[in-house]
């Protein structure tokens, strides 16, 4: 019997596909998410919009909150550690969380290195804004990728940019003659073996969800049509007027993302979505998607 293999790590992400992973901060919110049909919840002390508003250093969530949420729901529970903070990751693994998100939403603990995820039995999901970054994370042992978007803004534009960038770069790598692959690996800063894998398969070697700014059923449909395997919704649910209704609608939209009639039906009468921020008005030093290297 073998445990903690890459197949098992990537396998859980395969099971989450076509689903919605929701950020929650309390047991009540976790139950609402499960009831609405979330495939997993991300246990947090604060959702990204509140982290953004609060400023200061954002750290791993109190284990008490995570354990309470793990007790309250039967779906998988994820939790975030800071970039490079392998001690936080060790703590989260010992709690038995089902996935660790090494996340730019928290304040990075290391300005140069990410966690060596091969050292862990628990799988990791990591953010990426382009193919090179995604493949570096996979090279470090990430079993799932999420495009970063700009978390806590209610604005989907960065999520779209990152999804399109990765999609376009995959197409490019797949179409290049083999003798050019080493040069593109160098240019993207990606491991050659993984570039070769993308060249041969025409897709990322792991599941790719989209995150950061998705706040309506239409946003979920857009990003799924651009090729996401599923969506993370952070602030979009519990910053909306009617979280249960919004959560259910985004779940249905993610399943039927290609069906405008269903999308129109689930989008009706949801109340107001979360407040959306114009990204050009956010000071550069406050952008989260640029964290990670």
């Amino acid at each position: 019997m073998e445990k903690g293999t890459l197949k098992l790590k990537t396998g859980l992400a395969e099971m989450l596909k076509g689903g919605v992973i929701m950020d929650v901060t309390t047991v009540e919110q976790a139950k609402i998410a499960e009831e609405a049909g979330a495939v997993s919840v991300m246990a947090l002390e604060r959702i990204p919009a509140d982290i953004r508003a609060a400023g200061g250093v954002a750290r791993m969530t109190d284990p008490e909150i995570i354990l309470n949420i793990m007790d309250a729901v039967t779906i998988p529970v994820m939790a975030k550690c800071r970039i490079g903070h392998f001690a936080e990751a060790q703590i989260l693994e010992s709690l038995g969380v089902d996935y660790i998100d090494e996340s730019e939403v928290l304040t990075p603990a290391d300005e140069k290195y990410h966690v060596n995820k091969w050292n862990f039995k628990v799988p990791f999901v990591c953010g990426a804004t382009n193919l090179g970054e995604a493949l570096r994370r996979i090279g470090e042992g990430a079993a799932m990728i999420r495009t970063k978007g700009e978390p806590g803004t209610g604005n989907v534009v960065e999520a779209v940019r990152h999804m399109r960038t990765i999609r376009d770069e995959i197409k490019k790598v797949a179409s290049l003659p083999k003798e050019e692959l080493m040069a593109i690996a160098k240019e993207m800063g990606a491991p050659y073996e993984l570039i070769l894998n993308v060249h041969e398969s025409g897709k990322l070697p792991v599941v790719n969800f989209s995150a950061g700014g998705i706040s309506t059923p239409a946003d979920a449909s857009l990003i799924m049509q651009l090729g996401a395997d599923g969506v993370f919704v952070g602030s979009g649910i519990f910053k909306s007027e009617n979280p249960m209704k919004m959560a259910k609608a985004i779940v249905e939209a993610t399943t039927h993302f290609k069906n405008p009639e269903i999308l129109a039906k689930v989008s009706r009468g949801l109340g107001s979505a979360m407040y959306g921020m114009e990204l050009s008005k956010i000071p550069k030093e406050d952008l989260l998607s640029v964290r990670g290297w």
């Binding site: 019997m1 098992l8 859980l12 998988p76 038995g96």
Partner: peptide, 28 residues
Amino acid sequence: YGRQIDSFEEYISLGFNGGEKFKAIFIR
């Protein structure tokens, strides 16, 4: 079987097929 860290792979016999063992992936 527990949470994700207890997910496992195991070689199993198939009752309808006397051939090689089958590598089965058990996830949660």
